[in-house]
Simulated assay, not measured.
Amino acid sequence: MQTLGTLILLPVFLGLSFWQMERAAEKDHLLEAESAARHASPVPVDSLGPTDVPLHARASGRYDEHLFLLDNRVRDRRAGYEVLAPLRLADGAAVLVNLGWVAQGASREQLPTVEAPSGTVEVTGLAMTPEPPPFALSDRETFAPGWPKVVQTAVPATLEQELGYRLRPVVLYPDGSDVAAHKVKVMHDFGPSRHHGYAAQWFGFAVVLVIVYLWHGLHRGRQRRNEEWKQ
């Protein structure tokens, strides 16, 4: 049984270690792309498709009055929302712009009052494709009536179902905004070093497993020799 357990667990521990190393390499690539994007000239947002790395983009248009409140956003231990505003583009589509964080009301039923800037605006910032929420069984979400709408995901393909027009597959985080700074901070806080630590932890488990297996093997061998000597 011990041999079987070792044969099962050892590949699992090593596999998790290598997976964390791959995640660390991905985070390295992400942070390099974020640094490059901040120093690059912005590209038109309507030229972008889904992207795995941050890009510097620009968009101009007028904000739709229909806003989304991205739920479960915590700042300084206070619950709140991030405001997502569709910016209508010249081609009739729109791009979601993250206008920043607002505190939750006294209760979940009391939504904050939010408004987008009026008139024609030009926005430059980091463009990122949101990741779908973990364990999502469908790309559809049930929305309560009325606006603004509280949502659990910023995925454009999900939110455009309520708008009736197409959303670009990225969210813009405006240059110089608190929400953009927070996004970059989170990327660095959950950077490669954390994954390196997890990789070392799983590799350590594998080493301990092998040592314990060898020690038990030597111990059993010594016991058998002692029993044979007594006979």
Rank of each mutant, 00 (worst) to 15 (best):
A79E: 10
R222I: 03
L218S: 04
V171N: 01
L167M: 09
T51N: 02
F203I: 02
E22Q: 09
T142V: 14
H196F: 15
T120P: 00
T158S: 02
Y213W: 15
E26N: 12
W101H: 08
Y81G: 00
A90G: 06
W229T: 10
L10N: 03
R77H: 14
V186K: 15
H216R: 15
L14Y: 07
W101L: 04
I8R: 07
G5A: 13
H56Y: 00
P148Q: 07
E65C: 01
R78E: 11
A154N: 06
Q231C: 08
Y173G: 00
L10V: 08
L84A: 10
V208H: 10
P86K: 09
L167N: 07
V97D: 06
R78H: 14
G146Y: 10
R194D: 00
L163D: 03
I8L: 15
P117W: 02
L70C: 02
A199I: 08
L84N: 03
E131D: 14
P44A: 12
K27Q: 13
S47M: 13
P44I: 09
P54Q: 09
T124M: 08
L218T: 01
E122Q: 15
P117T: 07
V45S: 04
V150C: 04
L126G: 01
E32I: 09
S138Y: 06
D91Q: 10
S47A: 14
L14Q: 04
E115A: 15
R23C: 09
S17W: 05
V150R: 15
A199P: 03
V53A: 12
D46N: 10
A57F: 01
V12G: 04
G100N: 06
A144P: 00
Y63L: 02
Y63Q: 03
T51I: 05
P130E: 03
L99S: 03
T129C: 00
D71N: 14
E115D: 12
F13S: 02
G125N: 03
H216E: 12
Y63C: 05
V83K: 00
F18Y: 13
L67T: 07
P132H: 05
D91W: 14
V97W: 03
L172P: 01
Q20G: 01
S35V: 10
V212Q: 10
A37Y: 07
E65Q: 15
W202R: 05
T3E: 11
F190T: 04
A90Q: 13
W215L: 09
A136C: 04
G92V: 08
F205I: 04
